[in-house]
Structure formats: structure tokens, C-alpha cells
């Protein structure tokens, strides 16, 4: 039997900074964006001013498919923060769009992730112009 999982804390909202404010605004509009360097075209996440490869400042947002593979995950058996119903899963995803980039997120599945499993992002609207990005198996919605 697949194990039923709880949900992470609901009340913890991100505090965007001057580098990330627009990224969060795009995520709220269900767009997953990374930065692409105008000079060398290297993609990067999370948002920051300089390209770490060519050290130039000019860049633009590039909307990409939120897709990747499972690098790791944990099953939280303690609440850790108020408002959680454990056990809840946090997953570490290797992004397809940005080589070498790992991103954390919630897990939107009713069984445990698998190492190397293909996953896609799911936008979770949290109200007040905030969305978070959770992850689920890529074939999840395609199965009959």
C-alpha cells in the first residue's frame, strides 16, 4: 500500500530580495524562469546579478519547463516548523534546464520518490500572489 504523506508547514512564506523579487512574481504567474546570460548564454538559478562563468551583468529571463530528475529526498518525521503534518517529503531535483543545478521543493505524490526518477514541477497557489513549486513524477498525469 502506498503510504499517505502529510503536508509541509503552511505558514512559512519566502522573503524575496532585490535579486529574486521578479522570479517570485513570475512563479506566482505559473512561469518557471531562470536567468540566461546575454554574453555567454549560460543559464543560472537562483537569481543573482552576475554570471558566474563570464562575470558579466547583462541577462534576461528565460521561461523553461520545470523538469528534472530526483537527486535525493527526505521524509520528515518531525514537524520541524509549526503547521506541518508529518510525515512530509522534501525533494532535491536536478534541473534539466540548468546544468549542475539542484533545487528544493515539496513532493506531490502519494508514494516515495525514486532516485533518478523524472519529475515535473507543479505550481501550488498559496494566496496573496505567492506560488510554490512542488514536484511529481512526469508520467503522473499521463497515466490512464
Amino acid at each position: 500500500m502506498p503510504e499517505r504523506y502529510g503536508r509541509p508547514p503552511q505558514g512559512v512564506r519566502p522573503t524575496p530580495d532585490r535579486d529574486s523579487k521578479d522570479w517570485w512574481a513570475r512563479l506566482a504567474g505559473h512561469e518557471f524562469a531562470v536567468q540566461r546570460c546575454d554574453t555567454c548564454h549560460t543559464a543560472r538559478f537562483p537569481p543573482r546579478a552576475f554570471c558566474p562563468v563570464c562575470r558579466t551583468e547583462d541577462w534576461r529571463w528565460a521561461a523553461v519547463e520545470p523538469a528534472g530528475t530526483v537527486e535525493s529526498w527526505i521524509v520528515n518525521r518531525r514537524p520541524f516548523m509549526p503547521g506541518a503534518s508529518e510525515p512530509y517529503i522534501v525533494v532535491l531535483v536536478r534541473l534539466a534546464a540548468v546544468p549542475g543545478c539542484l533545487i528544493h521543493g515539496g513532493w506531490d505524490g502519494d508514494r516515495e520518490p525514486e532516485y533518478g526518477q523524472a519529475v515535473e514541477g507543479v505550481y501550488a497557489d498559496m494566496g496573496d500572489d505567492l506560488a510554490l513549486l512542488n514536484w511529481r513524477p512526469t508520467e503522473w498525469h499521463a497515466s490512464p
Partner: peptide, 29 residues
């Protein structure tokens, strides 16, 4: 830390969680 915004909303930022994540990757690999 700027990084907190990308982790804490998912209920993740305590050191045992972070180390458990890397331990799992090592176990799998």
C-alpha cells in the same frame, strides 16, 4: 540568508534535514 527563501517555504531548513538529504544521495549513489 538569501537561500532561506528557496527552502523554508517547503518546511526545510534545519541542519538534520539538510544533512539527511545529502546522506540519502550518498546512499543512492
Amino acid at each position: 540568508s538569501p537561500e532561506v527563501q528557496y527552502q523554508a517555504p517547503y518546511g526545510y531548513f534545519a541542519p538534520p534535514q539538510q544533512y539527511a538529504m545529502y546522506a540519502r544521495a550518498h546512499m543512492q549513489k
